[in-house]
């Protein structure tokens, strides 16, 4: 099988996964108790709820709603959000960039810090720095994300006032990003949410990377490199790290779901106007079209991320390309 054929097969499988996720979420949210009406906390007059349900077609049989939804989706129509009173697509367009900014910065922090710590720990395996860092990363990894978020907000936002308490930008100076100052302001607002999300991820990545580096360290080619007198820095970075990167790339695929689910909590706590918060509030208000759309987008990102990770694996490891050519699925390799 050629790489192109493999890619085509993966694309088809990816689309099937996305359709399955959308179907599952669509049915689940419709079957869940609670009704799509009004605000989060207020009891809305039942007559208004009935009117909303009629207007939105929520009173029709679920299969009919699903059929109509698929037809609309095929035409690129994600539906209408009754809680936001605007097209779902507009809401996604507004919020997705914020989630990508947050997840992107968190991902960079996660991988850079995690990678550095993992390498450092592996080079000092079972020595005091490794033991200390191992416990620290385990501690951070075990922290509930929301708790860490609230702690950082309290200490660095409220008490020390080093960083803003929530929001994506200064509402007075930068309601829109139209200058270098406002770009910096956005980054400033990103520090706490991205650190929360990235720190917990980095702790996991560090442990992952340390184990991968140690697994490679005992390989013959590492011993041979050292015996040939290759400098230690080169041994670590060119021989050991390169081979340990395979698991790192696999973790990239796994990190996306973590970041997107983490973003739900982080965005809510830090008042970050992203898609995670949008989806969370949509679930609370039983805004069916919005819930389904956020699931669709999130699953697409995750599936695409995994596809990219698989491709990168193929690039990084020639053995996998050979196996793919032999009709082996890279994912299982």
């Amino acid at each position: 099988m050629t790489v192109a054929a493999w890619l085509l097969r993966r694309l088809v499988a990816s689309i099937a996964i996305i359709v399955a996720v959308v179907t599952f979420v669509f049915i689940l949210i419709h079957l869940a108790p609670g009704r799509p009406c009004g605000g989060r906390d207020e009891i809305v007059d039942p007559t208004i709820c009935e009117q909303v349900n009629r207007q939105m077609g929520f009173d029709r049989p679920i299969l009919e709603q699903y059929g109509l939804y698929l037809v609309a989706l095929a035409h690129g129509n994600l539906g209408y959000s009754f809680s936001l009173r605007r097209p779902v697509r507009d809401a996604i367009d507004d919020t997705l960039p914020f989630t990508l900014q947050l997840a992107g910065v968190a991902l960079v922090l996660d991988f850079l810090l995690g990678l550095a710590l993992g390498i450092y720990q592996a080079r000092r395996a079972n020595r005091l720095p490794d033991v200390i860092l191992g416990n620290v990363t385990l501690f951070v990894y075990s922290l509930p994300t929301f708790w860490l978020a609230l702690l950082l907000l309290l200490v660095f936002g409220e008490k020390l006032a080093w960083f803003p308490v929530g929001g994506p930008s200064d509402p007075v100076l930068c309601p829109v990003i139209d200058s270098a100052f406002c770009v910096a302001d956005r980054l400033w607002h990103l520090v706490l949410p991205a650190t929360t999300l990235g720190l917990v991820g980095a702790a996991g990545t560090a442990r992952f990377q340390r184990a991968a580096m140690l697994a490679v360290a005992s390989q013959d080619y590492i011993r041979t490199a050292r015996a040939k007198g290759v400098p230690e820095r080169r041994v670590v970075l060119h021989h050991q790290l390169r081979n340990a990167l395979l698991s790192f790339i696999t973790r990239f695929g796994l990190a996306l779901p973590f970041l997107l689910t983490g973003a739900v909590l982080i965005e809510t706590i830090f008042a970050w106007p992203g898609m995670g918060r949008l989806g969370f509030e949509a679930i609370l208000t039983r805004d069916y079209p919005l819930v389904t759309a956020t699931a669709l987008i999130a699953s697409t990102i995750v599936v695409a991320g995994n596809l990219v990770a698989d491709l990168l694996l193929g690039v990084a490891d020639p053995r996998l390309r050979v196996r793919a050519a032999e009709d082996l699925d890279i994912v299982t390799a």
């Binding site: 609230l150 907000l153 309290l154 936002g157 409220e158 006032a161 803003p164 308490v165 929530g166 929001g167 509402p171 007075v172 809510t268 706590i269 830090f270 008042a271 918060r277 509030e281």
Partner: peptide, 22 residues
């Protein structure tokens, strides 16, 4: 001259914003 309603989905964070002079 200017009024801004800043939306924060969490009451505690909204209170923190006022306390932190934001």
């Amino acid at each position: 001259r200017r009024l801004i309603w800043r939306f924060t989905p969490n009451l505690q964070v909204a209170v923190q914003q006022v306390i932190a002079d934001q």
